[in-house]
Amino acid sequence: MAQNIIHLVNVSKNYNGTEALRNINLYIRKNEFLTLLGPSGCGKTTTLRIIGGFEAPDGGEVLFNGVNITSVPPYKRRVNTVFQKYALFPHLNVFENIAFGLKIKKMDKKLIAEKVHNILGLVNLSGFEQREIDSLSGGQQQRVAIARALVNEPEVLLLDEPLGALDLKLRQEMQIELKNMQQRLGITFVYVTHDQEEALSMSDTIVVMKEGSIQQIGSPIDIYNEPKNSFVADFIGESNIVSGIMLRDYLVKFAETTFECVDHGFKENEPVDVVIRPEDIQVVPAAESKLQGEVSAVTFKGVHYEMIVQNNSTRWKIQSTAMAPVGAKVGLQILPEAIHIMKKVTVK
């Protein structure tokens, strides 16, 4: 088993009565790229700030390489942060910003210059040493912020929505650059985002959070294919979520139709949530399927078409490279493996 570099044990945090985090338990393995993912206000930043030491948890412990660091101040932690709003020092130029941490460590001047030079090359800002911060574009400031943290060679790098302010193209470039850096330098990244695509494409592990608690921890593929509940399913990628009844093991009824499935272990006739990904539904001639509907909308999305098919009681979102025109009667084919059965979430 890979070594756990950070371990949050039963961590909770209240802000004047509102629970920002409840009982968070989380391992972060050495050298992994872990992403905290969730909607706004779910406690991602709070979790990061507790790891960085800027916020003390109200309950629970933070372990670093097995040592309890819950009450260690930030400047003594071997963790560096890339802040959501960069937080670059406006009175210092690019070189001085990046050298800030190294100077505090009383490193040799020549070595500092060399390290700053190298890291600037890494973030594609060679020759920017003497530039003032406010003369840089958002993307450049972003990369200075990353360089300023990385140059200290922390064991763990915390990144709070570092690409949030960038436009789509730059964001995609930076995603690739960040992932490369992480792999080359072998640093553990704890990354915060509320962009599920970003999380899926960059992470080794994704932690899905909602209202201060962890919903699911797993690899991107696990989370996408085996979401634990309808919240995760809905948040990660698009989904059709409908109510159904588990008739017995391997047999479920939804949309007034009975389907075979691969899930079992539910009570007989237990109400469940059924989750089906839009790309897992095939459009077939109406006669070939037991579930039929009428196409009510078609949108071209580049690689595929997105169709809305209205069945008596339900609307189905379907993604397919084949297209049926609006008004066409079609059949919907769903394979047993494409049907994900989840316990009903009572609180919503």
Partner: peptide, 15 residues
């Protein structure tokens, strides 16, 4: 003065 700057300095090892 932005409080984040102070946090950033602490993060970089400044007492």
């Amino acid at each position: 003065i932005d409080r984040q700057l102070i946090e950033a300095a602490a993060d970089l090892g400044a007492d």
